[in-house]
Simulated assay, not measured.
Amino acid sequence: MRQTITIKSIFYVLITLTLTACATMGDGNKVEQQQKILQMKDTVLTQLFANKPDTREQLSAAPGYAVFSNANINLIFIAAGTGYGVVKDNQKNTHTYMNMAEGGIGLGLGVKDYRIVMVFHSKDAMNHFVNSGWTFGGNADASAKAGNKGGSVEGEAYYGDVTVYTLTESGLALQATIKGTKFWRADALN
Rank of each mutant, 00 (worst) to 15 (best):
G151T: 08
G151Y: 11
G151K: 12
S152P: 06
S152V: 11
V153I: 15
V153L: 13
V153M: 04
E154Q: 15
E154N: 15
E154V: 13
G155D: 09
G155P: 07
G155V: 07
E156H: 08
E156T: 14
E156F: 10
E156Y: 12
E156C: 09
A157K: 07
Y158H: 14
Y158V: 15
Y158S: 14
Y159I: 11
G160H: 09
G160I: 07
G160R: 13
V162F: 09
V162R: 09
V162H: 02
V162Y: 07
T163G: 03
V164S: 12
Y165G: 05
T166R: 00
T166K: 05
T166G: 01
L167V: 12
L167Q: 10
L167S: 03
T168D: 10
E169N: 15
E169P: 03
S170L: 10
S170G: 00
G171C: 03
G171N: 01
L174Q: 05
L174G: 08
A176Q: 06
A176Y: 01
A176T: 04
A176G: 13
A176K: 02
T177E: 01
I178Q: 11
I178C: 06
I178N: 08
K179T: 05
K179D: 07
K179I: 01
G180E: 05
G180V: 07
T181N: 06
T181D: 01
T181Y: 00
F183C: 04
F183D: 05
F183Q: 02
R185G: 12
R185W: 04
R185I: 13
A186W: 08
A186I: 02
A186M: 09
A186K: 02
D187N: 12
D187M: 06
D187F: 11
